[in-house]
């Protein structure tokens, strides 16, 4: 039973890791790529490491720590990357609907330097 759950989680995670990579390949600009990259790889890595823990119950604490670490740090690094790319002047995709970021002087200030 545990083995079945473990393999299911591993394949679930592998599928989403692949989808995240495909999203990075297909989406048109930095911010959309960041969306696909962050969400899919976080859930994929989380589910793969917990699945390995189910296959070897003695390893479960350490894989749990790895999963927790990924869950906590991945959104932070994506947030830092998105903010840095906006401030360094990367343009949005031309079909984007709205850009409220221009209204804040903290965002555009460094672009003009």
């Amino acid at each position: 039973m545990l083995t079945a759950i473990g393999w299911f989680l591993i394949y679930f995670g592998a599928f989403f890791l692949f989808l995240g990579a495909l999203g990075i390949m297909r989406f048109p600009d930095v911010y959309n790529r960041l969306q696909a990259g962050t969400k899919c790889t976080t859930l994929g890595a989380l589910s793969t490491s917990i699945g390995v823990g189910f296959l070897h119950p003695a390893w479960l604490p350490k894989t749990f720590i790895i999963a927790l670490f990924i869950l906590l740090t991945n959104p932070i690094s994506s947030h830092a990357l998105g903010r840095a790319s906006y401030r360094s002047g990367v343009k949005l995709w031309e079909k984007s609907v709205v850009d409220k970021c221009k209204e804040f002087k903290e965002c555009v200030e460094e672009e003009n330097e």
């Binding site: 990579a21 976080t42 991945n74």
Partner: peptide, 26 residues
């Protein structure tokens, strides 16, 4: 095209590689 694109790709690649290393341990 830009440095930001490359860095986003590398960031995702490191997360994927972490999962790969866990599978190799198995």
């Amino acid at each position: 095209p830009t440095a930001a694109d490359r860095m986003v790709a590398v960031d995702s690649m490191t997360t994927i590689t972490t999962a790969l290393l866990v599978l190799l341990a198995l």
